[in-house]
Design a protein around this nucleic acid. Structure first.
Lengths: 193, 193
DNA sequence: ACGAGAACGCTAGCACCGCTAGACAAGAGA
DNA sequence: TCTCTTGTCTAGCGGTGCTAGCGTTCTCGT
């Protein structure tokens, strides 16, 4: 069994290598630069090998997206749990979310802009997605004031997503970034009183 | 001069034809199906002709986006001015915006998701962009309650954009769509009191 | 009326894309 | 040692955005 185990481990390593290469290439040159030829070159194998790991290019993007969502979840949890009160927790979550999107634009694009095969917002959603959304639920929970938590969480997420994407494509005034964030937090908090 | 005028008119007609063909193709089969070969086929000319009208494919997408933003502006103005009070105007604007995005997903993508050469949120922005943003400004104006109108307008737009895109890519619960909208309007209105 | 020249659109082709068929080599088990 | 499985490679398909260079057509001065 030692041989087979080694094979599996090497396969897993290469799997990891492909996903990381795709992510790095996307982060440095955009998803347009992520081609199967360049990927296979970076992983030091031929193109068909990629297709023995993934059904196609979209599946690779999906793998990158899942990784990113896991990392975002960790960042959001750290920010949220370090706050002194619910309103501060919401601010910390929002700041962290927007900072993540700004720091990793291509990763963010894979996570929430490009179409992937990740199933969102259903019972069958992958755990990593449920965990990410749970961060929003936990954050808005104390601030609902009679409003439905799931709806409020989706609204907050949507607002942050809109801010992140419009700002990331230079469609908003950069000088108002902080004010927009403050206004958002205030609107959510005051609406729950 | 009649000849030259006829030439210019025919050129303008073909320009219009290209933009319309791109839009129709995108709406029916997505932007992935919009290729220069298929476009030139629809317009009954060769590929190089496209490049005598536009610098490249991105310029065609930009032209489609500008058209769409103009149409959205008209729809928003109609909705806003037909409302009885500021809060109702905001609701009407939001409903109309989301309905537009849902009815024309590819057009919306060109307008606010894909990178185009349209310059947003600056003094040099095209008039069509200023007019669109003015609809948001006019709508939130009576609801600011001391808040900065431009910041609030950008926030409302961002929230609607987030809702439109996340909903349009099946990342939100469809059954909560109406509740999200109601919550958004309430948060904006109550935050201004 | 006619030839020169410009304006314009065409064919053909470049380098690249995602993806796959089929040849080939290396290793496991009898 | 021979066979067979497993895995990878080369080569290629039909497509992409875009362009060089040729040919036609049409305008205008003589």
């Amino acid at each position: 069994m030692s041989v087979q185990q080694r094979r599996e481990r090497e396969r897993a390593e290469r799997h990891r290598l492909i996903v990381d290469a795709a992510r790095e290439l996307a982060e440095s040159e955009g998803w347009g630069a992520v081609t199967t030829r360049r990927l296979s070159e970076r992983v030091a194998c031929s193109q068909p090998v990629l297709y023995s790991h993934f059904t196609g290019k979209e599946a690779i993007v999906t793998a990158v997206a899942a990784d990113g969502i896991g990392e975002l979840t960790v960042a959001l949890r750290t920010a949220r749990t370090g706050a002194a009160c619910p309103a501060e927790a919401l601010t910390a979550l929002a700041v962290t979310y927007l900072a993540f999107a700004r720091a990793h634009p291509a990763l963010y694009e894979a996570m929430f802009v490009r179409r992937t095969s990740l199933e969102f917002a259903t019972e069958n959603s992958p755990e990593v997605l449920k965990a990410a959304f749970a961060e929003f639920l936990h954050t808005v929970g104390p601030l609902t004031g009679g409003r439905d938590p799931a709806t409020l969480a989706e609204l907050v997420w949507s607002a942050l997503h809109g801010l992140a994407t419009l700002d990331g494509t230079d469609r908003l005034r950069p000088d108002l970034a902080e004010d927009r964030l403050e206004l958002l937090v205030d609107a959510v908090v005051s609406g729950g009183v």
